[in-house]
Amino acid sequence: MRLVICDTADYVAEWSAKYVLKRINDFQPNPDKYFVLGLPTGGTPLGMYKKLIEYYKARKISFKYVKTFNMDEYVDLPRDHPESYHYYMYNNFFKHIDIDPENVHILDGNAPDLVKECDDFENKISEAGGIELFIGGIGPDGHIAFNEPGSSLASRTRVKTLAQDTLEANARFFGNDISKVPNQALTVGVGTVMDAKEVMILITGSHKAFALYKAIEEGINHMWTVSAFQQHPRTIIICDEDATLELRVKTVKYFKALSATHQKLIQEDGDAILRRSIQNN
């Protein structure tokens, strides 16, 4: 696992966007080889989307041959509701870039048969050849997508009933009226994300510091679903200083010492493995 510690949340946005830029460009997607990207919503990735749009406008990146799969969506929330993830993705990302709408996949929370919708979603991911890079955020309780505490770490895309805590936290987006908060969601499973070739998780803010601690310093536990990624061969967590507040000094120092290596990951000519020549005197 890699942990990249950035000074600020803004830099987390920039770092993660640069990483996506480099991964897609290195992949050299074309009509015969699409780059498949898993995408999150929420406040944390917003800055990353802004940066990616900036890079698109500066012609540094194209999404023409990129397929996207979103993590989750509320059930029975009108698609054009400002809190729906369809709305979020269109307005914060898709409408600004050159992605082909045919290549965008978001779970339909208004589908007549929700189980079928979830199964189809898994199939579509497989048909696309699996997800190359899955980007995620987490909640303060360590949930990834809507895989709340106690979710099976082997779970697949399915309907989830949301925890009371989540409803209360979300009420602020629905006029502080908890009865208006959707109480179900469709979400990819932890297992679905685990199948991605690479997982990048963005964590910012002191309110998520305890979750980050649980994610990396303690064992794998379904009460902190993000901890499952300890077993993923390619996980990269990007966090800000605030999110490290619950980590041991040792942990932070260890990962900070690797920052030169991490920096290489986003350099245009950078290689994942840093080489140097040792001179004989």
Binding site: R79, D80, H86, Y87, Y90, N91, F94, K95, D100, P101, E102, V104, I106
Partner: peptide, 23 residues
């Protein structure tokens, strides 16, 4: 914002993006 037009009328691009999936 961009303005989208079809058949002489202003249309909602988000709806077209998700429903018709056309550019």
């Amino acid at each position: 914002e961009d303005l989208w037009v079809r058949d002489g009328k202003i249309v909602d691009p988000e709806k077209i993006f998700y429903d018709e999936k056309i550019k």
